[in-house]
């Protein structure tokens, strides 16, 4: 796969983030281009998840800037990030446990719904039409991810692999332009991983969604990603196409070389 020649959609510049004494990120810069699949890799505790949290405003870096589609900001709140079209999934599944699969995915449509409280209380009329219109959109995603059979199941009762898929569905329901995936395949068996890879590629292909993903499985990363950022102890130690990363001396020493 050749790197796409899209415009830069997101760039992070000189990000530094620390928690008390712990430096999670120091001086990290990279960019993400329109339409690409970008991976962030690195050993445990390298700061990968922290980076995603900075991008969508859950963490506020002490230093550095994030600019998304030409808009620069240092302090972002997650709500604004969502409104601008950034959606994500979490490393430890963060579904709404007490709700059904369908309701979980419907929350992804929250920002696009317009009815006020009174209209919702009355329900019939505008609210009903709105609910049905969004339900149709959600059903498309349910079809796409092949989870029709579980749509009325409370998510807490689902096996791990399916929960990961529902979380992806919820993020997709927001029709994001940028999708952040934190270890979408962790803890899955080979078959589930293959399915998930296919879904990620399809999302990228069919909806043109730009994707940033964190993944430990090198095979997967080398296969599906256009470009890769490598973090180690909160610093960027490599950035490039899979081929470039594979032959990067520093990366091999720090990460790829050590028994993986």
């Amino acid at each position: 796969m050749s790197p796409p020649a899209g415009h830069v959609m997101l760039s992070v510049d000189n990000i530094a983030l620390s928690f008390g004494g712990v430096r999670a990120l120091s001086d990290v810069s990279f960019d993400v281009r329109e339409g690409e699949i970008r991976a962030i890799i690195g050993p445990n505790g390298a700061g990968k998840s922290s980076m995603l949290n900075v991008i969508n405003g859950v963490y506020h870096p002490q230093q550095g800037d994030v600019s998304f589609r030409g808009e620069m900001r240092r302090r972002m709140d997650p709500h604004r990030a969502a409104a601008q079209g950034i959606a994500r999934t979490f490393q430890n599944i963060a579904l709404f446990k007490g709700m059904t699969v369908l309701d979980n995915i419907m929350t992804g449509r929250n920002l696009k719904m317009r009815c006020n409280l009174l209209e919702q209380a009355i329900y019939i009329g505008r609210n009903r039409r709105e609910e049905i219109a969004h339900r149709e959109k959600v059903e498309e995603i349910i079809d796409f991810l092949q989870i029709e059979h579980i749509r009325k199941t409370p998510v807490g009762r689902l096996p791990y692999g399916l929960q990961k898929r529902v979380e992806l569905a919820r993020a997709l329901a927001a029709e994001p332009t940028l999708l952040l995936l934190d270890e979408p395949m962790a803890g899955m068996n080979v078959e589930e991983k293959q399915d998930m890879c296919r879904f990620i590629l399809d999302v990228n292909d069919e909806f043109g969604t730009t994707i940033v993903l964190i993944e430990h499985d090198m095979g997967v990363v080398m296969d599906i990603c256009d470009r890769i950022v490598v973090l180690d102890y909160g610093r960027k130690i490599g950035d490039g196409t899979p081929d470039e990363i594979r032959s990067n001396k520093v990366v091999i020493d720090a990460y790829l070389g050590v028994s993986h």
């Binding site: 997650p78 709500h79 959606a87 963060a94 579904l95 709404f96 446990k97 929250n110 919820r170």
Partner: peptide, 12 residues
């Protein structure tokens, strides 16, 4: 109620 961080991230 179920997961406030995830709710915020989805735009609530």
């Amino acid at each position: 109620r179920d997961m406030d961080v995830a709710a915020e991230v989805i735009g609530i």
